[in-house]
Computed example of a mutant assay.
Amino acid sequence: MHVERRGPVAWIRIDRPERRNAYDLAMARTMIGAFEDAADADAVVLTGSGGAFCAGGALDQLGDPDPGRLRALFAASLRLVNAIRACPRPVIAAVDGPAAGGGNELVVACDFAIATRRSTFGQTGPKVGSAGVLGATNMLTVQIGEKRAKEMAMLCRRYTAEQALALGLVNEVVDDDGLEEAVGRWIAEIRALSPRYLEIAKISSNQWWHQSADNMNAGLGMLVQAIGSEDMREGARAFLDKRAPDFRGARAREDAARAATDAAREGGRS
Protein backbone atom coordinates (compact mmCIF):
# COMPACT_ATOMS: atom_id res chain seq x y z
CA MET A 1 0.00 0.00 0.00
CA HIS A 2 1.26 3.47 -0.90
CA VAL A 3 0.27 6.89 0.43
CA GLU A 4 1.05 9.87 -1.76
CA ARG A 5 0.46 13.50 -0.91
CA ARG A 6 -0.49 15.49 -3.98
CA GLY A 7 -0.52 18.94 -2.48
CA PRO A 8 -3.47 19.05 -0.07
CA VAL A 9 -4.86 15.67 -1.17
CA ALA A 10 -3.92 12.26 0.25
CA TRP A 11 -4.00 9.39 -2.25
CA ILE A 12 -4.15 5.95 -0.62
CA ARG A 13 -3.37 3.25 -3.17
CA ILE A 14 -3.85 -0.45 -2.48
CA ASP A 15 -0.96 -2.12 -4.29
CA ARG A 16 -1.32 -5.87 -4.51
CA PRO A 17 -2.38 -6.30 -8.15
CA GLU A 18 -1.44 -9.99 -8.34
CA ARG A 19 -4.34 -10.64 -5.94
CA ARG A 20 -6.64 -7.92 -7.24
CA ASN A 21 -5.58 -5.79 -4.29
CA ALA A 22 -7.00 -8.10 -1.63
CA TYR A 23 -5.64 -6.90 1.69
CA ASP A 24 -4.16 -8.90 4.55
CA LEU A 25 -4.03 -7.94 8.23
CA ALA A 26 -0.88 -5.83 7.94
CA MET A 27 -2.25 -3.93 4.96
CA ALA A 28 -5.57 -3.29 6.72
CA ARG A 29 -3.77 -1.86 9.71
CA THR A 30 -1.60 0.32 7.46
CA MET A 31 -4.68 1.67 5.67
CA ILE A 32 -6.33 2.48 9.00
CA GLY A 33 -3.27 4.51 9.98
CA ALA A 34 -3.26 6.26 6.60
CA PHE A 35 -6.85 7.44 7.02
CA GLU A 36 -6.14 8.59 10.56
CA ASP A 37 -3.07 10.50 9.35
CA ALA A 38 -5.04 12.18 6.54
CA ALA A 39 -7.05 14.39 8.90
CA ASP A 40 -5.03 17.42 7.80
CA ALA A 41 -5.69 16.88 4.08
CA ASP A 42 -8.43 18.63 2.11
CA ALA A 43 -9.65 15.32 0.68
CA VAL A 44 -8.66 11.65 0.55
CA VAL A 45 -8.71 9.38 -2.50
CA LEU A 46 -8.80 5.58 -2.13
CA THR A 47 -7.83 3.65 -5.24
CA GLY A 48 -6.23 0.41 -6.42
CA SER A 49 -3.43 -0.73 -8.73
CA GLY A 50 -3.10 -2.88 -11.82
CA GLY A 51 -6.63 -2.72 -13.18
CA ALA A 52 -8.48 -3.58 -9.97
CA PHE A 53 -9.91 -1.61 -7.07
CA CYS A 54 -10.01 -4.16 -4.24
CA ALA A 55 -11.12 -7.75 -3.70
CA GLY A 56 -11.57 -7.28 0.05
CA GLY A 57 -9.86 -9.38 2.69
CA ALA A 58 -7.51 -12.09 1.44
CA LEU A 59 -9.18 -15.51 1.16
CA ASP A 60 -6.02 -17.61 1.02
CA GLN A 61 -6.29 -18.72 4.67
CA LEU A 62 -10.01 -19.53 4.77
CA GLY A 63 -9.52 -23.07 3.48
CA ASP A 64 -7.43 -23.96 6.54
CA PRO A 65 -8.03 -20.98 8.82
CA ASP A 66 -6.03 -19.87 11.80
CA PRO A 67 -8.87 -18.66 14.08
CA GLY A 68 -6.75 -16.03 15.82
CA ARG A 69 -5.39 -14.47 12.65
CA LEU A 70 -8.75 -14.55 10.91
CA ARG A 71 -10.48 -12.98 13.90
CA ALA A 72 -7.87 -10.20 13.79
CA LEU A 73 -8.44 -9.65 10.05
CA PHE A 74 -12.21 -9.41 10.56
CA ALA A 75 -11.74 -6.93 13.41
CA ALA A 76 -9.28 -4.87 11.34
CA SER A 77 -11.76 -4.78 8.44
CA LEU A 78 -14.38 -3.27 10.74
CA ARG A 79 -11.85 -0.73 12.00
CA LEU A 80 -10.96 0.10 8.39
CA VAL A 81 -14.48 0.97 7.24
CA ASN A 82 -15.00 2.91 10.47
CA ALA A 83 -11.75 4.81 9.83
CA ILE A 84 -13.08 5.89 6.43
CA ARG A 85 -16.28 7.14 8.04
CA ALA A 86 -14.46 8.80 10.94
CA CYS A 87 -11.97 10.60 8.68
CA PRO A 88 -12.98 14.27 8.91
CA ARG A 89 -12.26 14.83 5.21
CA PRO A 90 -14.31 13.71 2.22
CA VAL A 91 -13.14 10.30 1.00
CA ILE A 92 -13.49 9.50 -2.70
CA ALA A 93 -13.34 5.93 -4.00
CA ALA A 94 -11.58 6.10 -7.39
CA VAL A 95 -12.57 2.74 -8.87
CA ASP A 96 -10.87 1.26 -11.91
CA GLY A 97 -11.64 -2.42 -12.30
CA PRO A 98 -13.38 -4.90 -9.99
CA ALA A 99 -14.62 -3.87 -6.54
CA ALA A 100 -15.59 -7.20 -5.02
CA GLY A 101 -16.61 -8.45 -1.58
CA GLY A 102 -14.95 -6.34 1.07
CA GLY A 103 -13.70 -4.07 -1.72
CA ASN A 104 -17.29 -3.29 -2.63
CA GLU A 105 -17.91 -2.51 1.04
CA LEU A 106 -15.05 -0.01 0.93
CA VAL A 107 -17.00 1.77 -1.82
CA VAL A 108 -20.07 1.73 0.42
CA ALA A 109 -18.03 3.28 3.24
CA CYS A 110 -16.55 6.09 1.11
CA ASP A 111 -18.36 9.42 0.85
CA PHE A 112 -18.21 9.52 -2.95
CA ALA A 113 -17.34 7.04 -5.69
CA ILE A 114 -16.17 7.62 -9.26
CA ALA A 115 -15.76 4.62 -11.53
CA THR A 116 -14.38 3.85 -14.98
CA ARG A 117 -16.66 2.13 -17.46
CA ARG A 118 -14.71 -1.13 -17.19
CA SER A 119 -15.26 -1.31 -13.42
CA THR A 120 -17.56 -3.89 -11.86
CA PHE A 121 -19.16 -4.13 -8.43
CA GLY A 122 -20.62 -6.84 -6.22
CA GLN A 123 -20.42 -8.97 -3.13
CA THR A 124 -18.93 -12.46 -2.94
CA GLY A 125 -19.88 -13.59 0.59
CA PRO A 126 -22.24 -16.59 0.33
CA LYS A 127 -20.41 -17.69 -2.81
CA VAL A 128 -17.07 -18.03 -1.00
CA GLY A 129 -18.20 -19.01 2.49
CA SER A 130 -18.62 -15.60 4.10
CA ALA A 131 -21.08 -12.69 4.34
CA GLY A 132 -20.74 -8.96 3.77
CA VAL A 133 -21.69 -7.73 7.23
CA LEU A 134 -19.53 -4.57 7.17
CA GLY A 135 -21.71 -2.50 4.86
CA ALA A 136 -23.39 -4.76 2.33
CA THR A 137 -26.06 -6.22 4.63
CA ASN A 138 -26.86 -2.97 6.43
CA MET A 139 -25.63 0.41 5.14
CA LEU A 140 -26.01 -0.61 1.49
CA THR A 141 -29.78 -0.81 2.08
CA VAL A 142 -29.81 2.92 2.82
CA GLN A 143 -27.84 3.67 -0.35
CA ILE A 144 -29.62 1.54 -2.95
CA GLY A 145 -32.76 0.15 -1.27
CA GLU A 146 -33.47 -3.08 0.60
CA LYS A 147 -34.43 -5.37 -2.28
CA ARG A 148 -31.45 -4.39 -4.40
CA ALA A 149 -29.08 -4.57 -1.43
CA LYS A 150 -30.28 -8.09 -0.62
CA GLU A 151 -29.87 -9.03 -4.27
CA MET A 152 -26.28 -7.83 -4.18
CA ALA A 153 -25.36 -9.18 -0.74
CA MET A 154 -27.12 -12.54 -0.90
CA LEU A 155 -27.04 -13.57 -4.57
CA CYS A 156 -23.53 -12.27 -5.32
CA ARG A 157 -24.43 -10.84 -8.70
CA ARG A 158 -22.00 -8.59 -10.54
CA TYR A 159 -22.93 -5.10 -11.72
CA THR A 160 -21.41 -2.89 -14.38
CA ALA A 161 -20.36 0.68 -13.59
CA GLU A 162 -23.44 2.01 -15.38
CA GLN A 163 -25.68 -0.28 -13.33
CA ALA A 164 -23.93 0.82 -10.14
CA LEU A 165 -24.57 4.45 -11.14
CA ALA A 166 -28.27 3.75 -11.72
CA LEU A 167 -28.50 1.98 -8.35
CA GLY A 168 -26.87 4.89 -6.52
CA LEU A 169 -23.71 3.05 -5.46
CA VAL A 170 -21.43 5.42 -7.41
CA ASN A 171 -21.69 9.12 -8.23
CA GLU A 172 -20.15 9.26 -11.69
CA VAL A 173 -18.92 6.96 -14.45
CA VAL A 174 -16.10 8.11 -16.73
CA ASP A 175 -14.10 6.76 -19.64
CA ASP A 176 -11.36 4.34 -18.70
CA ASP A 177 -8.65 6.95 -19.23
CA GLY A 178 -10.54 9.74 -17.48
CA LEU A 179 -10.50 8.71 -13.83
CA GLU A 180 -7.82 11.02 -12.48
CA GLU A 181 -9.22 14.00 -14.40
CA ALA A 182 -12.67 13.35 -12.93
CA VAL A 183 -11.25 12.96 -9.42
CA GLY A 184 -9.45 16.26 -9.93
CA ARG A 185 -12.73 17.97 -10.79
CA TRP A 186 -14.38 16.65 -7.64
CA ILE A 187 -11.43 17.70 -5.51
CA ALA A 188 -11.50 21.22 -6.99
CA GLU A 189 -15.17 21.45 -6.06
CA ILE A 190 -14.45 20.21 -2.53
CA ARG A 191 -11.57 22.67 -2.07
CA ALA A 192 -13.85 25.61 -2.89
CA LEU A 193 -15.95 24.80 0.18
CA SER A 194 -15.52 25.36 3.90
CA PRO A 195 -13.44 22.53 5.45
CA ARG A 196 -15.07 23.11 8.82
CA TYR A 197 -18.60 22.83 7.55
CA LEU A 198 -17.77 19.96 5.22
CA GLU A 199 -16.60 18.09 8.31
CA ILE A 200 -19.81 18.94 10.15
CA ALA A 201 -21.88 17.80 7.17
CA LYS A 202 -19.92 14.54 6.89
CA ILE A 203 -20.12 13.64 10.57
CA SER A 204 -23.82 14.50 10.63
CA SER A 205 -24.44 12.34 7.53
CA ASN A 206 -23.00 9.34 9.39
CA GLN A 207 -26.29 8.90 11.24
CA TRP A 208 -27.29 5.76 9.35
CA TRP A 209 -23.77 4.35 9.59
CA HIS A 210 -23.89 4.71 13.37
CA GLN A 211 -27.35 3.10 13.38
CA SER A 212 -25.73 0.09 11.69
CA ALA A 213 -22.89 -0.21 14.23
CA ASP A 214 -24.56 -2.79 16.48
CA ASN A 215 -25.58 -4.81 13.45
CA MET A 216 -22.01 -4.81 12.11
CA ASN A 217 -20.61 -5.91 15.46
CA ALA A 218 -23.17 -8.69 15.74
CA GLY A 219 -22.47 -9.81 12.18
CA LEU A 220 -18.75 -9.81 12.86
CA GLY A 221 -19.36 -12.00 15.92
CA MET A 222 -21.30 -14.49 13.79
CA LEU A 223 -18.47 -14.58 11.23
CA VAL A 224 -16.01 -15.33 14.02
CA GLN A 225 -18.21 -18.18 15.29
CA ALA A 226 -18.31 -19.64 11.77
CA ILE A 227 -14.51 -19.78 11.40
CA GLY A 228 -13.51 -23.28 10.34
CA SER A 229 -17.03 -24.30 9.30
CA GLU A 230 -17.37 -26.61 6.33
CA ASP A 231 -19.13 -23.86 4.39
CA MET A 232 -16.15 -21.54 4.92
CA ARG A 233 -13.62 -24.19 3.93
CA GLU A 234 -15.57 -25.30 0.87
CA GLY A 235 -16.12 -21.74 -0.32
CA ALA A 236 -12.44 -20.88 0.02
CA ARG A 237 -11.29 -24.12 -1.63
CA ALA A 238 -13.63 -23.57 -4.57
CA PHE A 239 -12.48 -19.97 -4.98
CA LEU A 240 -8.81 -20.93 -4.95
CA ASP A 241 -9.45 -23.93 -7.26
CA LYS A 242 -11.50 -21.70 -9.64
CA ARG A 243 -14.53 -23.98 -9.52
CA ALA A 244 -18.13 -23.72 -8.43
CA PRO A 245 -18.59 -24.48 -4.73
CA ASP A 246 -20.64 -27.50 -3.64
CA PHE A 247 -21.78 -26.44 -0.18
CA ARG A 248 -24.51 -29.06 0.21
CA GLY A 249 -22.28 -31.86 -1.04
CA ALA A 250 -19.51 -30.77 1.32
CA ARG A 251 -21.96 -30.79 4.24
CA ALA A 252 -23.21 -34.24 3.27
CA ARG A 253 -19.65 -35.56 3.16
CA GLU A 254 -18.91 -33.99 6.53
CA ASP A 255 -22.07 -35.52 8.03
CA ALA A 256 -21.17 -38.92 6.60
CA ALA A 257 -17.64 -38.72 7.99
CA ARG A 258 -18.99 -37.72 11.40
CA ALA A 259 -21.49 -40.59 11.36
CA ALA A 260 -18.74 -43.04 10.45
CA THR A 261 -16.58 -41.76 13.30
CA ASP A 262 -19.46 -42.05 15.75
CA ALA A 263 -20.21 -45.58 14.55
CA ALA A 264 -16.58 -46.58 14.99
CA ARG A 265 -16.59 -45.23 18.54
CA GLU A 266 -19.76 -47.11 19.37
CA GLY A 267 -18.27 -50.27 17.91
CA GLY A 268 -15.17 -49.84 20.05
CA ARG A 269 -17.29 -49.63 23.20
CA SER A 270 -19.20 -52.85 22.51
Rank of each mutant, 00 (worst) to 15 (best):
S270W: 14
A260N: 05
A52N: 04
A28E: 02
A259W: 05
A250F: 02
A52L: 04
G51F: 04
D262W: 10
M232S: 06
T116D: 05
V174L: 09
I92P: 00
D231Q: 13
A41F: 05
E199G: 11
W209T: 02
R233E: 06
R248V: 10
R258T: 14
S194T: 06
R20C: 15
R196K: 10
N171I: 06
V91Y: 01
S130Q: 04
W186S: 15
F239I: 07
T47W: 05
L134P: 00
G132P: 06
M139T: 14
A115S: 03
E105S: 04
A252W: 14
C54W: 00
D111G: 03
S77N: 13
D262Y: 13
P67H: 12
V170Y: 05
G249K: 01
D111L: 02
G249V: 04
A201D: 12
F74D: 01
A236F: 04
Q163H: 00
L62N: 01
V183L: 02
R269S: 15
D175H: 06
R191D: 15
A236K: 02
A131W: 05
A182D: 09
D255P: 14
G235Y: 04
A131S: 13
G101S: 11
A236I: 01
Y159F: 05
A182Y: 01
T47D: 02
D231F: 15
E189A: 12
